[in-house]
Design a protein around this nucleic acid. Structure first.
Lengths: 339, 339
DNA sequence: TTGAAAGCGCTAACAT
DNA sequence: ATGTTAGCGCTTTCAA
């Protein structure tokens, strides 16, 4: 169905010159007479000739395309990262090809194969929750394709990384709750094999310790979805020692937990404070608005692309870098005023 | 930095046969002896040879890539559509290249140029809010590239389309409110140059008319963001005739309006009912959960890809099709029980 | 049963 | 100042 595109040959034939002359004229090569150059440019304009990127790729061995694998696109943080990736990549003359792993290890492996076989110049990945075998990543690097991990990284593979400072973010959030008077703070955590979940948990623990609050095992509860929150939260409030603060591993969980707690009859933030993680749209929707740790996803995306393109365009090896993006506590209405 | 990929020549050289023999062996061509075939396949396996898609594209004139332009990625409905696009495209052997227009006409035009110049086989687009000149779309079709509009379509260009049945969705939502007893229903609308906004408004109007409720001009208010909701909603409740229902053009606006109304001291849904549009994650976060019109974005994405690939792979022209995806009212807690 | 050659669109080294 | 040629990786006649 495609109409044939105008090629350099068409231009050459029309002008009665050779393809290579056209090619040179287009690049402003000093050899070519300005008369020819003008004629070529005029016709190129008129016929709307565009060089075929596929032919260019074949020639240059570069596809000017980077591949991205995220666990899911329908997710505030990841879509923000993608937005940053897209913006900087296009500004740098690269195209972006997407795959979502849908949190499935098999799909992640398949996505890697897809991207490799489509000869992308580099790959950006955030691991899916279930990945614990990393051979598919080794295949990428052994193919000589630059690889950058972002957010959910794999620390067994030596490469560039962009991470959010989860530990510090969690520390800041929990410290703020403590300053505002909370003493019995629950952490609703993610699966601890996920580095980001582990780091957030550790930030929570450090905040308690530095404030001389005893860390209780039963106050760290695996709960990282809205459904789980509905299941788990009521139980926490049937304990003799009632929680007065909840720090959740993500905003969605925090939001649902807050709703549940309000329905149990507690006031937010007077009886119970809430802090979430991500600070996107969700945090403005809850009532009161959710205090949350902003992850700067857009910046994460941009930095990841920057590292990747540097690596792609590098003539020689240089040491790997891990870029840490600082989080920021965005205080809204779900916490009491800090001390 | 790229390590050289294994090519068909490498295989041929190693086996002491010619490249064309290797090529044929790989496709199971009847000419080739099974001994050769086996040898080739074994080495291909061992060396992990993968045909270069770029070379294939150059040859076949098809890139097996489709381009997608959406207003923004960080948006529940669009990310859902993208998810559907991605899933079906990959299953059909196509890659997906993304651009976001960021609701800017200029960026939309640039994105079209980018995709055209990267020789995608087809393009999927949802218009940005501000687009009113359509020449860049005409360029696509005059280049002979199949084009499918989805959701925010352009009805001045003859092509395939996938639309959500916005009018019916709005009608259903507003009818439900009326059945449950609402009589003074406000519509918070989008900009009426956007077809989807216009259609939703018309569904609202029809629902009122069919129930013999007078349509008042002052009850249709342009308001389609959270910020606008904060500005606009209090004014509505200082009228002598208080609203008892609000139908918003999207969930985000509905959610913020609901919050504002609750803070004014009204009960939801007892004093005021709310219905939104999209029914994603947002609708579960509000308190009470938001009754909303589900748009089935994932299906929209799949259908759009299906139409596009049909068109790409068609040998000859056939009539354009407009696929209408039925909406579905998802009743939650922000509306009273229907009559 | 296999191989040689041409060509997809473009570029660059090498003539002329 | 312009043209010729070869080649990027692969497929596909056509010839051997």
């Amino acid at each position: 169905m495609h109409k044939a595109q105008v090629t350099i040959k068409d231009i050459a034939r029309e002008l009665g010159i050779s393809p290579s002359t056209v090619s040179k004229a287009l690049k402003g090569h000093p050899d070519i007479s300005s008369a020819t150059k003008i004629a070529v440019r005029e016709l190129v304009e008129r016929w709307n000739y565009k060089p075929d990127p596929i032919a260019l790729s074949l020639k240059g061995g570069q596809s000017k395309t980077i591949g991205v694998i995220v666990p899911e696109i329908v997710h505030y943080f990841f879509s923000t990262v993608i937005s940053g990736i897209e913006d900087l990549a296009y500004d740098s003359g690269y195209h972006v090809m997407f795959c979502q792993s849908n949190e499935s290890y098999e799909r992640e492996v398949k996505a890697v194969e897809t991207l490799l076989s489509s000869r992308v110049d580099g790959i950006l990945i955030s691991l899916c929750k279930t990945t614990s075998n990393f051979d598919h990543f080794r295949k990428i690097t052994s193919d000589g394709i630059p690889l950058v991990f972002f957010d959910r990284i794999c620390d067994e593979i030596e490469t560039d990384r962009v991470v959010v400072d989860d530990e510090a973010g969690a520390f800041d959030g929990v410290s703020y709750m403590i300053k505002s008077g909370c003493r019995e703070i629950i952490h609703l955590s993610g699966p601890l094999n996920l580095l980001i979940a582990k780091n957030r948990m550790e930030g929570y623990v450090r905040a308690l310790k530095e404030n001389n609050i005893r860390v209780k095992k039963e106050n760290i509860v695996k709960c990282d979805t809205a459904e789980e929150a509905r299941m788990v939260v009521p139980g926490l409030f049937s304990r003799t020692k009632k929680p007065d603060g909840i720090f959740a591993v993500n905003d969605l969980t925090a939001a649902e937990a807050m709703k549940t707690v309000k329905h149990l009859g507690y006031k937010v933030p007077d009886n119970v404070s809430f802090v979430g993680f991500t600070s996107g749209m969700i945090s403005d929707l809850t009532d009161p608005a959710l205090t949350s740790v902003e992850q700067h996803g857009y910046i994460v995306g941009k930095e990841a692309v920057r590292l990747l393109i540097n690596r792609i365009e590098a003539k020689e090896d240089f040491p790997f870098e891990t870029k840490i993006i600082r989080t920021e506590l965005v205080v809204k209405g779900s916490t009491r005023k800090g001390g």
